[in-house]
Nucleic acid binder design. Sequence first.
RNA 1: CGGGGUGUAGCUCAGUAUGGUUAGAGUACCUGGUUUGGGACCAGGGGGCCGAAGGUUCGAGUCCUUUCACCCCGACCA
Length: 567
Amino acid sequence: MRFSKAFIPTTKEAPSDAVLASHIYLTRAGFVAQVASGLYNYLPLGKRVLKKIEAIINDEMERADAQEVELSFVTPAELWQESGRIEKFGKELLRLRDRKENLFVLGPTHEEMMVNLVRNRVTSYKQLPLNLYQIKTKFRDEARPRFGLMRAREFVMKDGYSFHATAEDLDREFDAMEAAYKRILERLGLDFRIVEADSGAIGGSGSKELMVIADSGEDTIAVCDSCEYGANIEAAHRRVISSAPSEPSLANEKVHTPDVRTINDLADFFKIDPHYTLKAVAKRAIYEESDEIVIFYLRGSDELQEVKAVNAVAALELVDVTEEELEAVGLVPGFIGPFGQNDITSVFDSGLKGATAMITGANERDYHMSGADLSALDGVTFADLYEVKEGDGCPHCDGSLTYTKGIEVGHIFKLGTTYSKALKAEFLNDQGRAEPFEMGTYGMGVSRLVAAVIEQHHDEKGCRWTKATAPYQVNIMVSNIKDEAQLELGETLYSRLKESGVEVIIDDRKERFGFKMKDAELIGLPYTIIIGKELKNGKIQIFDRATLEKSDVQVEEAFETVMGLLK
RNA sequence: CGGGGUGUAGCUCAGUAUGGUUAGAGUACCUGGUUUGGGACCAGGGGGCCGAAGGUUCGAGUCCUUUCACCCCGACCA
């Protein structure tokens, strides 16, 4: 390609609303252009990057025996009613009616569609396993799109679904997909981590997210400093505390504690570690048809992880409650405790099993219980409720956990029979009995990856594409096109590189040196061959975008040197 | 969905408190010339329904009402 013919509208200024590096540079360098909130046009350079990433995904999927399909973007609403997700997704589904008034939904993900495709076509265990995927535009009417391509409403996603006769076979495929996803991200040149995750409202198990490490990431992940363990904070675990603070010896009695309401006050009052206080977090759990107040009990030294809490009571969501609402059901804010109080649904953090010497609320204004033994409680529900903290022990080794930020670029998990049951997708097993498919789902955000690459590979001058993602590998910059010798050499190198299969672009615009250099840096192709004033000394320069270094090369060696760099 | 902000040239923004020539700057664009190693210079030029609708007024970019869009914080996000 020639810059003189290319549609690469670069700008000096970024749109005023762009915050993220990827948003700023992808826009300034002419890769994408915003159309409306959360909607983007891909310009030629952006489209090339997208295709690069897609090609790598296709290649790895081929290797893993997954087959590509393409399902229609407009999907019948009946399918969503069948699975029950038309309500769960809610307003995120963009609904529309055709001329006959039939209701349709723009596909935000395609579980239903894929199950629908396979059901009644795959009818025997002999036809399994099957792994089908597509790379397709999705639409989710996000309440608040932001961060450019990172959280767009319309985006490109690779979504794959596998079908199995047994859970064991699903496990095998799941591992194979994890390995394939890992290779994809390695080939893209990204620093990432595969972490344990919550599977969300969709249900399922074995949930893992692929996180590209970046400060701008929207997810907090806890990673071990010495082993491979990593988990989204929504699902992270920690080693059971082995070195608990020494247990205080306080009599089991009701103690007058005027105005001692917070955990800190309580710990000070009794001169104990917050570890031995019982924290009660009250929330209103919202269910499809009803709602109720739930109390979550944790050690005072822990914080409630809300996603875990939602899962523990299988609620749609948790909302805060006011002191008035608590009083209305007979609770005493600041002094809530589990003893003598069985009317309210309560869940205890699993770390409280058999806890002794605890200080708890006495359900009476200005009173606490000291030296309480929680094992005295009957019929207690335990669940993981705590949020891991930095410094907590790794659950798998002696290391400790630290927080880092990640961009979720992939999410894989085992659906089991959730959808096959809901949509009655069954096959006959070797006993001739009908069974629902065991399913896995494997998503990867292709357009989000474009942004993720730049989040991880940029500097103050612009993009720094990895070799695997760069729209072109080499830029030939002819400093002054009026200088015939320069132009001629540029054209010669351009032809030779093209003939050798190198993705090359020549900057043959009638612009000054500085202007073209700024563009080269902003666009961020890996190498720029500078043909300029050094030509009269028989030299050109090769500018390495990653290091910003320019190295002199003899004209005769230029071609070979570049070919060597690209290997 | 709650709270806040902004809509004026392709882009980034002045101008709006206090209504009054022909609505401005920078940048980008076109023409000519000079220049050619870090977004150059000189001269000339094109480009605007001041987000939209309604209203007040002799007169509205500016005041009032309604509305739409975009952005930020939060809630939400298989």
